[in-house]
């Protein structure tokens, strides 16, 4: 057994602290490198008039969540259960248009 636990643990803590600080330095450096890539993606998205990111390709309404509507998962059947995991990661889009029509109805 070491006689001085503090002598072992405090330097380890200092290393962890340094790692924490380093992560921010690393982030700053990485961000610079990513800037070019993001700019390229942005240009592509603009050229192709993309409206969504291609993260969830499992269903129509998850591939373009911003273009789908609140009830998209239930179009196949009124009692259909949402069974795509994506549905639990993003909220259904709330379109102004729907709000507007409801507001006008009364």
């Amino acid at each position: 057994m070491n006689h001085r636990p503090a002598r072992l643990v405090l330097p380890l803590l200092a290393v962890a602290l340094a790692g924490f600080a380093m992560s921010f330095v690393d982030a700053a450096l990485l961000r610079e490198r990513h800037a070019v890539r993001i700019e390229a993606s942005h240009a592509l998205a603009k050229r192709l008039e993309l409206t969504d990111i291609a993260l969830f390709t499992e269903a129509r309404y998850t591939r373009h969540p911003s273009q789908a509507d609140l009830h998209a998962p239930f179009q196949d059947h009124p009692l259909a259960l949402e069974h795509f995991p994506t549905g639990s990661l993003i909220a259904p889009p709330r379109h102004e248009y729907l709000d507007r029509t409801t507001a006008r109805a009364d």
């Binding site: 993606s41 592509l44 291609a54 591939r63």
Partner: peptide
Amino acid sequence: LPHDSELVSADLVL
């Protein structure tokens, strides 16, 4: 399409 832009273009067929 460039690999760098996969996040927006992974499944596209133009």
